[in-house]
């Protein structure tokens, strides 16, 4: 729970992405950009991993869109996830290449995705807490659906 007062949802990774309705903005990831060397990372970091400066990292919105780097279908899943499910890496225009799940809108079939295709970010449920509160996280889906 982000602030302890909202019981409509629980973010899986607090502070790593915008929550729809909370900010009024289009969904985006929240990473860091180095003022000194311009390196961009996701998730956020305090010390720049490229130039190793401390105190130069600034929070920045990113990843509203991206390109699919590659993907696979996993037929076994750790606790809390339902197989079969997609696993993917997405290149976002701000720089990072990030691990992501794929939206539940996309049928879990090999030909539903293609390397290099344009993707858009969604914030979506990835299961729920024992108290039936949805757990929200970021995922991608093919753009313009």
């Amino acid at each position: 729970m982000s602030d302890g007062s909202n019981t409509d949802y629980v973010p899986l990774l607090p502070g790593a992405y915008s929550i729809p309705g909370e900010t009024g903005e289009a969904p985006h990831l929240i990473g860091s950009r180095c003022r000194a060397c311009k390196a961009t990372v996701f998730p956020k970091m305090a010390v720049c991993p490229a130039c190793r400066a401390d105190g130069t990292m600034e929070e920045t919105a990113m990843g509203a869109s991206g390109r699919l780097y590659n993907f696979t279908i996993a037929y076994v899943a750790p606790q809390g996830f339902q197989a079969p499910y997609f696993q993917a890496f997405v290149d976002i225009p701000e720089g990072p290449r990030i691990f992501s799940l794929i939206s539940d809108d996309v049928p879990v079939e090999t030909d539903a995705l293609e390397d290099g295709m344009a993707m858009e970010l969604v914030i979506e449920a990835v299961g729920e807490t024992p108290e039936n509160v949805p757990i929200l996280t970021y995922k991608y889906r093919p753009a313009g659906r």
């Binding site: 899986l12 990774l13 790593a16 998730p43 780097y69 590659n70 993907f71 696979t72 996993a74 076994v76 899943a77 750790p78 809390g80 996830f81 499910y85 696993q87 993917a88 890496f89 290449r97 691990f99 992501s100 799940l101 990835v126 996280t137």
Partner: peptide
Amino acid sequence: LELSQMGMQFSASYAIHP
């Protein structure tokens, strides 16, 4: 932690991890 929380599956990471 963020990777395991996001459901990264170990075998799948060998298939697609950069």
